[in-house]
Design a protein around this nucleic acid. Structure first.
Lengths: 199, 199
DNA sequence: CAGACACTAACACAGGTGTGCTAAAAAGAG
DNA sequence: CTCTTTTTAGCACACCTGTGTTAGTGTCTG
């Protein structure tokens, strides 16, 4: 009988409007009304899908990471272990306009999450994602190790953390100075780092 | 004749109150009134030293980097070139509560600066600081090179950027997961990275 | 003390904030 | 078409926002 709308889709549309607002004017400007205007709906419409603002913020944040995760899960790379590893890691880095936007928003969320003391949903989520990326680094290095292409005598745990830090640093630099630290340069630096780990 | 107050000192006190608010409740909560309350003064007093909010924000941001710069300039390290290099780089990393607080606030400013389109003061400042840190990495690696302790055949430009990215990545990780990525671990990872560059 | 400065208190303004509520419009299956 | 369910627009509320302004009180120094 009733009009059926996919709630999930609507929520994602609204969350993406939130992204645009955050990216254009900062998280301080992300009010229910500005987001509604950005999405092209009334404020009431937004509040139909998100009763309160915190829910919206959390959802929008989780959507960022969901998008990244989906891209990674959908990856089917052929080639050497090294090629595969690089390809996976590139998916996390701001190598095109979309991913740069993602990272900008993600950065804003991290900063906001830092502020919320105690058991904050935002904070827990940042933690989870952070762990997730480390696990990705871990499994990739492990794959390289099992393929026998790694240098002998490497402290793998340490290399995982070093790689992880480098990834996040590169992403940050790609966001701060996209001109200097462009996609090509990022790729180059990442590849070079991996190569220093190879035998 | 008059009561003389060092304006600079007062402005710094207020800026530090801004830091605490940003760190505790996020940049969204950093209003003139909340900052005044945090500083223990009336809103009028704050506005006596900062006619508008943007000025306060900019000043507070520049104060963060000024503190870091002052610490670095004041450094007098003895020891090997390597020791000196490590010691300098550590000054930028969130290795104690104070520096962790600094970095949290700095992160919030970076995220905010990302949003401000066009010629934003915040953005210019982030750029400047970013360049400054790269130059520090550059001069430290150059010093190592001239001391002849570096591996032969290194692409110095590349290594500067890699080190720079690693530094920022480590700082980020120290902020996100201070338990896992504590001071000792950060130092260890940094030292290890430098060691991979040595002959 | 005198006088220049530091600061407070209080108000005003126009506008934005999250949230709660209500009346109406839309929409599709029977 | 009808009727039930969604979906929407819009108003209301109390409060916070940055920025002005004004008048008055402290407070220290020469």
């Amino acid at each position: 009988m009733p009009k059926i709308v996919d709630h999930e889709t609507r929520r994602e549309e609204i969350a993406e409007a939130l992204w645009r607002v955050v990216r254009r004017d900062g998280i301080r400007a992300a009010s229910v009304r500005t987001i509604a205007a950005e999405a092209g709906w009334s404020a009431g419409a937004v509040r139909y899908y998100f009763p309160d603002q915190d829910g919206l913020l959390n959802f929008a944040m989780e959507l960022v990471t969901r998008r990244v995760t989906e891209r990674i899960d959908a990856l089917e790379v052929k080639g050497s272990v090294t090629t595969i590893a690089l390809r996976y890691l590139e998916e996390v880095l701001p190598l095109d306009a979309d991913r740069r936007a993602e990272f900008d928003v993600w950065l804003a969320f991290i900063a906001q999450a830092r502020a919320e003391t105690g058991v904050s949903t935002l904070r827990q989520h940042v933690d989870k994602v952070h762990d997730g990326l480390r696990e990705l680094c871990d499994s990739l290095l492990r794959a390289l190790d099992q393929a026998g292409v790694l240098k002998a005598g490497l402290d793998l745990r340490r290399e995982v953390e070093r790689l992880h830090a480098l990834i996040d640093g590169l992403a940050l630099h790609g966001a701060i100075q996209p001109d200097r630290t462009g996609p090509a340069r990022i790729r180059q630096l990442l590849r070079h780092h991996i190569e220093t780990l190879l035998a």
